[in-house]
């Protein structure tokens, strides 16, 4: 069985994230890493592969040169091989364009099960898995906090706003897993060493048959008009509780007309 995990290389959320002059994410200012929410995707893919016995896990990313770091991390967790789609023309692509590139790469790689994270930690849209399902004509079984494979059927639990749902679909399918699906493993020393020897297949847009004008800033179907740093919140009052803290807080809330 071929399992492909889509992972994104993102700027570290604990760093000072900014935008570049062309309104795209500044990838110089802050160190990048494998999106923490995609570690859950890698973890569940490895678990499913272990349970299946005869499965191969490929990790796939669309991103700049440094995105290799994200692939290495996933390989050191235990994935078997990697696919890196890298092309200067991809810079600035919106989500519709990204989904076009990834679906082409998936077709080239081959898959029975596509695994995604619940959302990236930079764009945070949470829609790419649904777009892949739409493009590939596959069922989407997404936002799962629990997932299993039984024969050719993928099953999972989705905790929605109003209800918890049990879902199932036949393979091939696209799934996404949440950060409730189970802690991701740490790469072992052996895993890190082994990852260095695992194959990374590179593709550019030509290899995938994607036209340059379908992607990038010019091919985007959305356009950023302005970006404004949010004014820092003005420092408020902080008091030490000397026995009256609750009362002082009540006085503040009353003054603000909350009580």
């Amino acid at each position: 069985m071929r399992i492909v995990v889509c992972v994104k290389y993102v700027p570290d959320a604990t760093g000072d994230r900014r935008f570049a002059d062309d309104t795209t994410t500044d990838r110089e200012a802050v160190d990048g890493l494998l999106s923490e929410l995609d570690e859950y995707g890698v973890e569940q893919a490895l678990k499913l592969a272990e349970a299946h016995g005869d499965a191969e896990v490929t990790v796939l990313t669309v991103g700049p040169d440094d995105a290799k770091d994200a692939l290495r991390k996933a390989l050191s967790m235990g994935a078997d091989k990697a696919v890196h789609v890298n092309d200067e023309d991809i810079h600035g692509t919106d989500v519709i364009g990204t989904s076009a590139i990834i679906s082409k790469a998936l077709e080239k790689t081959g898959y029975d099960l596509v695994v995604c994270g619940m959302a990236s930690t930079d764009g945070t849209m949470g829609v790419l898995p649904a777009l892949l399902a739409e493009r590939l004509g596959l069922p989407q079984v997404t936002l799962l906090s629990e997932v299993s494979l039984e024969g050719n059927t993928v099953k999972g639990r989705r905790d929605g706003d109003a209800a918890t749902e049990q879902l199932e679909a036949e393979l091939p399918a696209v799934i996404s897993v949440t950060d409730q699906s189970g802690e991701a493993r740490y790469p072992s020393f052996k895993g890190i060493m082994a990852a260095k020897k695992k194959p990374v297949q590179e593709y550019d847009l030509d290899d995938l048959g994607v036209e340059a004008d379908e992607v990038g800033l010019t091919g985007a179907w959305t356009a950023v008009e302005t970006i404004t740093a949010r004014p820092a919140r003005t420092a408020g009052t902080v008091v030490k509780d000397e026995g009256e803290g609750g009362k002082q807080l009540a006085a503040f809330l009353a003054e603000q007309k909350f009580i």
């Binding site: 919140r233 902080v238 009256e244 609750g246 009362k247 009540a250 009353a254 009580i259």
Partner: peptide
């Protein structure tokens, strides 16, 4: 505390009940 309009440095188990009592009284 960098975000707050109002902050209390203290134990929540004493501050919250006192606040609740005060809210109810008001």
């Amino acid at each position: 505390f960098e975000l707050v309009d109002y902050g209390v440095v203290g134990d929540l188990f004493t501050v919250l009940p006192q606040l609740t009592a005060e809210v109810k009284a008001r």
